[in-house]
Design a protein around this nucleic acid. Structure first.
Lengths: 134, 134
DNA sequence: TTGCTCCTCACGTCACGTGAGGTGGC
DNA sequence: TTGCTCCTCACGTCACGTGAGGTGGC
């Protein structure tokens, strides 16, 4: 599905008959999906539909969901919720990185504090023995 | 819907006819929803269904979604995805608090570093000029 | 002209809600 | 006995996919 010239998955490449063949659906079904707001293919100046690779993948996802018994209202809703979940997961990932950065900064700050120590203050390193505590 | 004795929204209180009346649905419809896995009311030792306030709220949510045109497969999927979104939002909120805590700690650390500075080491602050790079 | 596109209309199938009908335990 | 519960079966309605039928531009 990728590796196309220009590698732009949103580029409108396929007329409806080709898109239908790629997705394993009837052309008329694609028109129905569009009317229901499930996807919005590009249009040529003349008014014909042109589908991108992203559109094809969306069609395959829609097909999965309808095969699982969802009707088109459910498919529309599920696609929207899945997009929301994607956003939340990304935001989540970024927040985790923020926490990591903040902790790293704290550690760096700590190490910087240790740098000015004079050699005369160095002591031999001992592994912590089985002391009464700590 | 709340404020019940004991205030436990999961307590099984209503027989199917009462639950159906509360939700504005037919008892038989509630049985269908259960068979489709949309909710699982408690059972008495004799085998009769008992619905909780939480079950009633779920029934109302199911009703909303079917009125919006979703079939039951779609409703089941949407409810699961909404639960996932709830989890992600909560996790997200906790991560934000972690970031806030880490930043607060860094500020505290910073303030502590500033305390030991001797007055003799103070220099005038200059804004960085337009140097050749960086 | 051929083969595509566009659209609308109609039919078959299936899901779901509703009701009927018959059973059994407080 | 009455009024509930349990279940299954059948029917009406609606959504959706499919196909036909007619139009128009490369």
């Amino acid at each position: 599905m990728a590796g196309r010239a220009g590698d732009d998955s949103t580029r409108a490449l396929y007329v409806i008959s080709v898109a239908a063949e790629l997705a394993g659906l009837h052309a008329q079904t694609l028109r129905i999906y569009e009317r229901k707001g499930l996807l919005e293919p590009a249009r040529t100046p003349g008014g014909s539909r042109r589908y991108s690779d992203r559109d094809i993948e969306r069609l395959l996802r829609i097909q999965q969901l309808t095969e699982e018994g969802l009707n088109l209202a459910g498919v529309a809703r599920v696609l929207a919720l899945e997009a929301e979940i994607g956003r939340l997961r990304r935001e989540n990932q970024e927040l985790r990185q923020s926490v990591q950065r903040a902790v790293d900064d704290a550690h760096r700050q700590h190490r910087r504090d240790l740098v000015p120590v004079q050699p005369s203050t160095l002591v031999q390193w001992r592994r912590p023995g089985p002391g009464p505590r700590d």
